[in-house]
């Protein structure tokens, strides 16, 4: 009887050890991957000056396009499949970031608290 209990507990302990080591390993892997992504994608928060320059550039570009609608048309005609895919990916990223921000803002993972 005692030996059986001992066997059972030792098995449980070894299983727990295995599980914890696996969790540690995959946690490290995930952390490394996210670090790599952070570095490769340049995800560090931009400075205020960068914000300013990007938005002023975007404003100028949109003004230019608004003044010359034919240019927009030619641009749209010249767009490549790869570029389209790239911009689509960016759009999906933006949607993801917006969703994450919303989750933080409403302090709840799914749906809103008060209905």
């Amino acid at each position: 009887m005692l030996s059986r209990i001992q066997n059972y507990t030792s098995g449980l302990v070894s299983k727990a050890n295995l599980l914890s080591s696996k969790a540690l390993y995959y946690g490290k892997v995930g952390a490394e991957i996210s670090k790599q992504i952070y570095l490769k994608e340049g995800l560090q928060p931009p400075t205020v000056a960068q914000f300013k320059s990007v938005y002023s550039n975007l404003y100028k570009q949109s003004l230019n396009f608004a003044l010359k609608p034919t240019e927009v048309l030619s641009c749209l005609k010249n767009i490549q499949k790869n570029e389209l895919l790239k911009y689509g990916a960016y759009g999906i990223q933006l949607i993801g970031f917006y969703s994450v921000g919303e989750i933080i803002g409403r302090r709840k993972l799914v749906g809103y608290k008060h209905h």
């Binding site: 994608e41 340049g42 995800l43 560090q44 928060p45 931009p46 960068q50 914000f51 990007v54 938005y55 550039n57 975007l58 960016y90 990223q93 933006l94 949607i95 970031f97 917006y98 994450v100 921000g101």
Partner: peptide
Amino acid sequence: TVNVLRYSAL
């Protein structure tokens, strides 16, 4: 640009 847009979206 993309990074700025991403953080703006956030």
